[in-house]
Simulated assay, not measured.
Amino acid sequence: MFDFGFSELLLIAVVALIVVGPERLPKVARTAGHLLGRLQRYVGDVKSDIQREMQLEDLKKLQQQVEQQARDLEGSIRGQMNNVEADLNKTAAEVSEAVAVSAKPSAADEPAPPASGSALLAADAVPERKQQEGEADAPQEDATPSPQLELGLDPAASASRQPAEKA
């Protein structure tokens, strides 16, 4: 800090001995040492505060750089996701068009339309009429009701009725 040589320090000690006197010189030296120690601690605290502020500034700059890089990365990822999504949508549209074109049945390939509900009920009523008329050749069906309506949907019931309908 200050550039003092040995000869300058010796001159200051002699002047202090003459001005202060030999009796009070140890007290003055002790007080000067305490003050010098406080001054050094204060200078050290100021230096550490300045270093902390500089580190804080560096950290803020680093944080801003990281945030900017994160924003840039997020933007590029969003752009790539939009491109991939557009490609997927385009491919899905092409596939659905191809499926729609290949799934169009021709007039000869179309299956027969399903029978209406009234036609099924009329077919089920034929064995019942025969039983009411008293025809003996038709086998008797169980009197227990089936768990489903008589629409011809239950495979077990339709299997038991097939011999009756064929007769």
Rank of each mutant, 00 (worst) to 15 (best):
E133C: 12
V43K: 07
V20A: 01
G117V: 15
T31H: 08
D45V: 03
A159N: 06
E74N: 05
S96W: 09
L62Y: 13
L59N: 15
E141H: 03
A108W: 12
A103F: 09
F6I: 14
D45N: 08
A164F: 02
I50W: 07
K130M: 15
P127L: 01
S7L: 15
I77S: 03
E94H: 11
E97M: 15
V43R: 13
Q162S: 08
P145C: 03
E57N: 12
P163M: 03
N82D: 11
Q69S: 09
A167E: 06
L120T: 01
R41K: 10
T144Q: 05
L151P: 01
P163W: 01
A29N: 07
L62G: 13
D109S: 11
E128D: 14
P22W: 01
D109L: 13
S116V: 07
L59R: 08
E110C: 14
A108S: 11
D109A: 06
D137N: 12
G79E: 00
L35P: 01
Q65I: 10
P139T: 05
A93Y: 15
R52A: 10
S116G: 12
Q131P: 01
D142W: 04
G21N: 02
K47C: 09
Y42I: 08
E141I: 01
A167G: 13
E165K: 15
A100G: 02
L25C: 03
E150K: 03
E94S: 12
V95H: 06
L88N: 04
F2T: 10
V66H: 12
K90Y: 07
E110L: 14
Q140P: 00
L153D: 00
T144H: 04
A86K: 08
P113G: 01
A123W: 00
L39A: 14
L151Q: 10
Q148F: 05
R52F: 02
A70P: 00
L25N: 02
S116Q: 08
G134S: 04
L153I: 11
A156C: 06
G37D: 14
S7G: 06
V20P: 00
D124Q: 12
Q80L: 07
Q68F: 08
R71K: 11
E74S: 03
T31N: 14
V84N: 04
G21P: 00
Q80R: 04
V66M: 06
Q51M: 13
Q55C: 08
T31E: 15
E53W: 04
T91W: 11
L25Q: 02
S158E: 10
E135T: 13
K61T: 14
D58K: 09
S106W: 07
A29G: 14
M54G: 04
E67R: 03
K61M: 15
S96C: 11
S160I: 00
V19P: 02
S118P: 00
T91G: 15
L73G: 05
Q69T: 08
A136G: 09
S106Q: 05
F4T: 04
R71N: 05
F4P: 00
N83H: 08
A70V: 11
S146M: 04
A159E: 12
H34C: 13
E150P: 02
S160A: 13
A92V: 07
D142N: 03
L88E: 12
A143R: 03
L59I: 11
D124P: 00
E57P: 02
L35M: 15
A112C: 14
D3S: 12
Q80H: 09
P147C: 04
Q55R: 08
L35Y: 12
A93W: 06
E57A: 09
R38N: 09
G134W: 00
R38Q: 07
D124S: 06
P147H: 04
A156G: 06
